[in-house]
Design a protein around this nucleic acid. Sequence first.
DNA 1: CTAGCTGCAAAGTCTTTGCCAGGAA
DNA 2: TTCCTGGCAAAGACTTTGCAGCTAG
Lengths: 147, 147
Amino acid sequence: MQSSHTETIDAFRRLCRQKGIAATHQRHTVYQCVMNSKDHPTPELIYERVREEFPFISLATVYKCLHTFIDVGLLKPASLHHASLRVDPNLHRHHHLVCKICGSMTDVGDDQIVQPRFVGKLPRGFRVEAIAVEVIGTCADCQQQVQ
Amino acid sequence: MQSSHTETIDAFRRLCRQKGIAATHQRHTVYQCVMNSKDHPTPELIYERVREEFPFISLATVYKCLHTFIDVGLLKPASLHHASLRVDPNLHRHHHLVCKICGSMTDVGDDQIVQPRFVGKLPRGFRVEAIAVEVIGTCADCQQQVQ
DNA sequence: CTAGCTGCAAAGTCTTTGCCAGGAA
DNA sequence: TTCCTGGCAAAGACTTTGCAGCTAG
């Protein structure tokens, strides 16, 4: 977890100054925790991990830290779809255009996209069942809103 | 909305019998609503739309119908990530292996996948900013659990 | 010193559950 | 008739908010 603590704290300070946010102990711990995660942890999981070395942090603070980091571009949400269930009546193989502003999803036919393919080694032990392509961007409506 | 009502009701009855679920008025209305949606509606939105022609349905019933349809394969969730926020410390272009059982996400380097490409016409008015590939399947751990 | 941050608890979303009455097969 | 389903309201999961006190810069 900690290689050269002083060094990483300084690096984090610099990063925060550069992004215009305060470098607090909580933020540093949350940041370290996420950067050292190989999985794509949920706020709850980060909270549990961080509490091991910072027992008094609150879950609300973890949420606030994560959103701050996302806002300044230090982290990304792993998916655009953590809001609400959405159902898809189209059972055929197809892909989606996803608007990052309004979250709208539009179908793209399977034949309109060249299937992605693995190059070299497939991941060990993982049984591939489908490949979904998400084309992320801004829909026509949202482009007008911003202008 | 309704073309040949008797016909579609019969078709729905057949579908339900085939899937081993009861063909109720509520289920039929929800099913019709979703099948006629071009977007990928949320339960709340479906609820609003369905209430126009079936004012006494409850939101809980909409949820139950949707899950029933998903369980029997009449519908799919539009994404696997509607549970909780997950953050990604990896800011480089990369893709994900997603386990449909446990939801785990593993990184796949951008260079391990041949980028998908559009064939022919790009979607009108949509500004493409990124393309994310999700390789969906079952992870090694979950395969063992099932066996 | 000041602006911005944390912790707490309360409130807000979204979703599920338990239970009984009612409808499908 | 029997089993499944719908409606309601309560509970549950996840997330945000308001505010008072504290901390970084």
